[in-house]
Design a protein around this nucleic acid. Structure first.
Lengths: 200, 200
DNA sequence: CCAATTTCTTATCTTAAGATAACGTTTTCA
DNA sequence: TGAAAACGTTATCTTAAGATAAGAAATTGG
């Protein structure tokens, strides 16, 4: 377990400010519940069958969420710097994960263990703010997923790709195309054809 | 604005107990923030372009969420008795809705206005419990949507339909097939063909 | 209770996606 | 740095979904 630098804490505090602001007394206690972990390229944050006991904040690097279906690797989602990372369902319910989460490059993640998360929810000093933080975080990702479901219901793969070109710059720029294809719900070959269609 | 019966309050309190338990003093205050509304068949709970200023709890009846895309009606989601109903993104962000929510039959909905919701979040007597309620509610729907995205990424339409046959009894039993088809991300004609394929 | 509407199926035709393989390029890393 | 792996494109073939229309059955609502 490495020490957390002041700079890393500041990075988190600044991003988290969108959701929650701690006063100094709260912050001192809060940061005692944080850990930090370095992931090597291809190292796993979660694997199927194990319970995800951690919620993380990506300080640097990136991860992808993926499934192995009949031996095939299907990418589901990505998190970059200043995103949160967790197998939320597993973290929240205590059920085993169903997907892999893997670092795509050397990645530094600030983590809160389920044990510490629950401890904060039960600590009168922090409970209110952590409830609020958890609410705003869940609401944020709820909206992301709601939009994504809507795109599957109402748009063609080509339309989803065009939208991603506009609003998913990080994904487009930093992820290989076969991951992006999976993310859009299609095969890499199909995405290659869509790109050619669009050019004409 | 109708009066809310004791029986209706109990129905809500019992379901909400999964998320939050109020003591009597809190409950008295909480219920002052509730309203009730009857929707006739086909009446709208939200329409695109307007901000959704309400979160609801379906006491009886059912609603569907749908989009009009190039004049075509595409059903996205359903809520039944004891489900919550809202255009969450609009409710939470204050942006205009992008979808319709419509009663499919005479439907009674217990509602909390955004104004009252925010008032409770700012009422020291209730704030903590409402934050918690909101967190657990958002987490619940986050998990639902996460599962649904995963089904689009990893399953064929036929597999999604087979899963729905197992775990979506309410939808299968109570919704017409062309709504179910949209919900699965396919056309009604395609769902009809899938059903025939499965029988053989 | 009956006309109008909705719903579902089926058929036809078109279009696009999936599966697979081949091939050239780029990247990785031992 | 050189062999292996990963990546993207293209081609071929297969399969399934979309678009459309027609018709039967069920439901609705005045």
């Amino acid at each position: 377990m490495d020490a957390i630098s002041q700079q890393q804490l500041n990075q988190f505090r600044q991003q988290a400010a969108a959701y929650i602001e701690f006063n100094e007394a709260e912050w001192i206690i809060f940061i005692q519940h944080l850990s930090i972990k370095q992931y090597r390229k291809k190292e796993h944050f979660t694997v199927p069958g194990e319970v995800c006991k951690t919620i993380g904040f990506v300080l640097s690097g990136s991860v992808r969420y993926y499934h192995l279906i009949d031996g095939k690797d299907i990418t589901n989602y990505f998190s970059f710097e200043n995103d949160y990372v967790s197998s939320y369902k597993s973290f929240l319910t205590g059920e085993p994960c169903i997907s892999y989460i893997q670092a795509l490059e050397p990645t530094t993640i600030l983590t809160i263990s389920k044990k510490n998360w629950d401890a904060m929810l039960n600590n009168p000093m922090l409970a209110y703010k952590i409830e609020r933080f958890g609410r705003l975080l869940a609401e944020y990702y709820l909206i992301c997923y709601e939009d994504r479901v809507t795109s599957f219901i109402t748009q063609t793969p080509e339309e989803r790709y065009l939208k991603l070109l506009e609003s998913g710059k990080d994904i487009i720029r930093r992820m290989p195309q076969h991951y992006i294809a999976n993310f859009l719900g299609i095969t890499p070959v199909s995405l290659s054809r869509i790109k050619r269609r669009i050019l004409v």
